[in-house]
């Protein structure tokens, strides 16, 4: 009997189950994350918002394999995470470009470390940089570029190794507001075109709502998941609006208000 192809289940991209993290320093122990569970499907764009210190960046470190959880498990594509993998791309708040290398050499750092074929990698790197508007700056040093351009180069570096999962840790917070708006449009476009699975961590609610399919709110330390909601914009039409267009949709203000109320930033203590 013929079995339809679709019955072979694909694993969700990321499965976080009951994860707890205890953080130790000589002075005190801190419970950073308490029993966090989250599932991210393939191709989904998920944003996590929360006040400072709620553990959202720590959660990304756990997913990337840089830290092990104290309890619970994290699986990527059904496999337990043991250590960092090139299939997972990580973008930091600072561009962390190496100051002594040219832009193209910076983009190729991942390929160098992983031993990927140099010619293939170089072609891909050049292609990415040209697409992001940095074609004239292949051989410049990071110090010669603006903040926005450096973040774009960092994005190229992250995508050069063709990761399946992208973890973005407040990648735009170090930029000025206008650059941030422009860049989030570009990045959202690139990532959806390539159908990447993305987990974005940010404290900018507007950014989260406009860029992501689903927004997750985390409570303050110890971090727990407070709520999840899909952020669709049916008033725009059948397709999803770009982040900039999304801000003008009527649903935007509602989402913003609800999430704002949920975040306990404004509670003085």
């Amino acid at each position: 009997m013929a079995v339809p192809d679709q019955t072979i289940p694909t694993h969700p991209a990321v499965e976080i189950q009951g994860v707890t993290l205890n953080y130790f320093t000589p002075d005190r122990e801190t419970l950073a994350l308490a029993n966090v569970s989250l599932t991210v499907e393939q191709g989904e764009f998920v944003a996590i918002v929360g006040s400072s210190g709620c553990g959202k960046s720590t959660l990304l470190s756990l997913v990337s394999g840089l830290l092990p959880p104290s309890r619970g498990s994290i699986r990527i594509d059904g496999k337990e995470v043991a250590k960092p993998s090139p299939r997972v791309g990580y973008m930091f708040q600072k561009d962390t470009l190496l100051e002594w290398r040219t832009i193209i050499d910076n983009v190729l750092i991942g390929a160098e470390l992983l031993g990927i074929d140099k010619i293939v990698a170089r072609r891909r790197a050049e292609d990415l940089l040209v697409r992001y508007g940095l074609g004239d700056f292949l051989h410049s040093l990071p110090g010669q570029l603006s903040g926005g351009m450096r973040q774009r180069a960092a994005l190229a570096r992250t995508l050069c190794c063709e990761p399946d999962l992208l973890l973005l840790d407040e990648p735009f917070s170090a930029l000025d507001y206008q650059t941030r708006l422009a860049l989030s449009d570009e990045v959202a476009g690139i990532l959806s075109a390539e159908r990447k699975t993305v987990i974005l961590v940010t404290h900018d609610i507007g950014e989260a709502i406009s860029m992501a399919n689903r927004v997750i709110v985390m409570s303050r330390r110890p971090g727990r998941i407070k709520s999840e909601r899909k952020t669709d914009f049916p008033s725009f039409g059948p397709t999803r609006p770009t982040p900039f267009q999304a801000r003008k949709c009527s649903e935007f203000a509602n989402y913003f208000q609800t999430i704002w109320d949920e975040l306990d930033i404004h509670q003085i203590h």
């Binding site: 960092p84 190496l98 750092i109 470390l113 992983l114």
Partner: peptide, 20 residues
């Protein structure tokens, strides 16, 4: 952060030493 970048790409300690 640059150290973390290297480790997140799966670099070995020797690679981090030599290149960072």
């Amino acid at each position: 952060d640059q150290e973390r970048l290297f480790y997140s790409l799966g670099a070995s300690r020797w690679q981090v030493f030599k290149k960072l």
